[in-house]
């Protein structure tokens, strides 16, 4: 443990309004900490710069999964273990359930929260590609009120996002209209478990008589933040899934992907594996819309 606990202040106000009031009183001064699976690792390495921490752990107002006929709303304090146990998520948002199962260890999943994963904003975040292809919306909260934005507009750069200094991520809204979509998610990590993603690709798609009628593609570790692959989507949308289309899509993805060389892999490898994953996805797509 390289961090000095005495150098940090940690407060736990115990309720969401109290936390929001603290953030509003001195915007930017307090760093929220939920499960701590990211910040405590930095602390152990002596690299936690945030001196003042406000705990979100255990706030009842943040840890919930609410299901209505139109949507499922997941509180930002919901753990990945909670996500894995939810039957609606398992049935209709299986990519999210699978992504949750890949995060760290069971111990990590019992502490790590969905909100923490998104706000931390790692380009390799496991839950992000799934949320992007499910058209997730985020609900943000502060003493000034609430607002909703598309998750696709949340990240603005490497570990940067649209949250104001007094704002928290409150919940993730998933529209319940993907149950019949063809879905794909594959993570390529450094090993089978306890691995950080080297590249991941997620997709939701619909086909009508061999033509791609709807498609969302999102990736991890191909850009400074998790993002949709709009250009590659455009190369597929409305096209018959034939060798020319597939080839165009591959080349589009090669150009659209902006991976980097880092300690875990190389840009060249990531780019090529992303294309291979796209191939694998397109091979799996069935030519007709699924019916109930």
């Amino acid at each position: 443990m390289r961090g000095n606990p005495d150098a940090h202040e940690l407060v736990a106000p115990g309720s969401l309004p109290a936390v929001l009031a603290m953030l509003a009183a001195s915007p930017g001064e307090w760093t929220p900490i939920a499960g701590g699976t990211e910040l405590m690792v930095a602390h152990a390495a002596g690299k936690l710069e945030a001196r003042k921490l406000v705990s979100l752990w255990g706030l009842p107002g943040l840890r919930f999964i609410e299901t209505s006929p139109e949507s499922i709303v997941i509180g930002a304090g919901t753990t990945f273990r909670d996500l894995r146990a939810d039957s609606t998520i398992a049935a209709e948002f299986s990519l999210l359930a699978r992504a949750a199962s890949w995060i760290g260890s069971v111990a990590n999943q019992s502490r790590a929260t969905l909100g923490g994963n998104l706000v931390n904003g790692s380009p390799a975040a496991d839950s992000s590609p799934a949320l992007l292809v499910y058209d997730a919306e985020l609900e943000l909260i502060s003493v000034r009120g609430r607002r909703r934005i598309a998750y696709a507009k949340f990240h603005t750069g490497y570990k940067r996002n649209v949250l104001a200094a007094d704002e928290l991520l409150f919940a993730v809204h998933l529209p319940r209209r993907f149950a019949l979509h063809q879905q794909y998610l594959r993570k390529v990590g450094t090993r089978r478990a306890m691995a950080i993603s080297k590249v991941a690709l997620a997709a939701t798609a619909s086909m009508e008589v061999g033509v791609v009628s709807e498609i969302r593609l999102a990736a991890a570790s191909l850009a400074p933040f998790p993002a949709r692959l709009h250009q590659t989507e455009a190369a597929l949308l409305g096209h018959a899934l034939n060798p020319e289309t597939i080839n165009t899509a591959r080349h589009t993805l090669l150009a659209e992907a902006q991976p980097i060389d880092d300690i875990r892999s190389t840009a060249e490898y990531r780019r090529r594996v992303a294309v291979n994953l796209l191939d694998e996805l397109l091979l799996q797509l069935q030519p007709e819309r699924r019916s109930q």
Binding site: N247, R250, H251, S265, E268, Y269, R272, V273, V275, N276
Partner: peptide, 20 residues
């Protein structure tokens, strides 16, 4: 590592050639 095997198996190939 996979990055090394990638170089052995696929580097230098175009995406068309590399398609399994």
């Amino acid at each position: 590592l996979p990055e090394d095997l990638f170089h052995k198996l696929a580097a230098g190939q175009t995406v068309e050639e590399a398609t399994a």
